[in-house]
């Protein structure tokens, strides 16, 4: 992995934080800005979840990742701690791969 991407990416994330401290808070008061700023992370995170679960390289692939993600969903429903959610997903996927 390239160091340039890591450093440029980090610098950009920092600038976004810093710029925010200089923008007057009233610009954020509009309900649409508020809603959009709440929904953007939702959209991107759901996108990451779906892509990383079914992307098979330019095609959809239904494989051992799906049962793992279902296990994660069940663990989240049961209000399991973060690490349990991640481990449940990984163990389920690993077991399905072992069995098939």
């Amino acid at each position: 992995m390239s160091w340039t991407v890591i450093l440029v990416g980090s610098f950009g994330c920092y600038v976004l934080k810093l710029v925010g401290t200089f923008v007057p808070a009233r610009l954020l008061a509009g309900p649409r800005v508020q809603t959009f700023s709440k929904l953007l992370p939702v959209a991107l995170l759901v996108g990451l979840v779906v892509v990383m679960s079914v992307d098979g390289g330019r095609r959809l692939s239904i494989d051992a990742r799906i049962p793992g993600m279902l296990a994660a969903a069940v663990a989240i429903r049961l209000r399991a701690p973060f690490l349990v959610v991640v481990v449940a997903a990984a163990v389920t996927t690993a077991l399905v791969r072992l069995a098939t």
Partner: peptide
């Protein structure tokens, strides 16, 4: 070890509490 689902599972855990209300669900 099924570690390719570690990140998506983590993202799901991050987004799940935010999927409250119709706008968020529709977006999802």
């Amino acid at each position: 070890f099924g570690l390719d689902v570690a990140f998506p599972a983590a993202f799901l855990a991050l987004v799940a509490p935010q999927l409250q209300g119709r706008p968020a669900r529709r977006t999802g």
